[in-house]
């Protein structure tokens, strides 16, 4: 390994005493505090701040209108135009999920079902929202465009069980999504 020689800066007596810099530092802090109280923090206007610093006051003020298109909130399953559940339980999301939040029990579609040709769909699909880190890997890896991160971010519950989104809940959040590639069309 290369050895990097660095020279420590020579400090003047004034600098060595520290008091000057500490005093300067306190001025900086104080000035910032005054600005903050006056509501003149940098970015306070653009970020629609509450008047103190740049911080919003959450339940009253929300940023929903300004959420970007790509905002990664809670993951959810979607159905297509014909209300077919897009997920075929390939379990790639379960595999890629870094915190192992997803648990899928695959199942076969009965032969009398309208979509029997798809053969496979999840019997159970649980996402543990306590574990989920909103990384969006599941969305990225999905070969069927079945799982999306929705802009919902208010995920609360009073028990651990409540924080596990089951299949019904996931479809409820995800809803119908149109305009996606439809692999399982009449040609298939």
């Amino acid at each position: 390994m290369a050895t990097i020689k660095v020279t420590r800066p020579k400090l003047s007596v004034g600098e060595k005493v520290y008091f000057g810099s500490i005093f300067k530092g306190m001025i900086v802090t104080l000035r910032h505090a005054f600005k903050s109280v006056m509501g003149k923090s940098r970015g306070a206007d653009e970020l629609n701040s509450s008047g103190l610093g740049i911080t919003m006051q959450y339940p009253e003020q929300k940023w929903d209108d300004e959420l970007p298109e790509y905002y990664r909130g809670t993951p959810a399953l979607v159905t297509d135009e014909l209300d077919r559940e897009r997920c075929v339980s390939c379990q790639l999301c379960e595999f890629i999920c870094p915190p192992k939040a997803i648990k899928i029990t695959p199942g076969e579609i009965p032969s009398n079902d309208e979509w029997a040709k798809v053969e496979k769909r999840p019997q159970e699909f649980d996402i543990d929202m306590i574990r989920c880190i909103y990384c969006g890997m599941c969305e990225e890896v999905c070969p069927e465009q079945a799982i999306y991160l929705r802009p919902d971010y208010i995920v609360t519950g009073t028990s651990r069980k409540e924080m596990v989104h089951d299949k019904d809940r996931l479809y409820e959040i995800g809803g119908k999504r149109v305009g996606l590639v439809n692999k399982w069309n009449e040609l298939k």
Binding site: C90, Q91, F95, G107, E108
Partner: peptide, 9 residues
């Protein structure tokens, strides 16, 4: 084994 589990698990 049909649709029981993906082999990579």
């Amino acid at each position: 084994f049909r649709f029981q589990m993906r082999v990579w698990f």
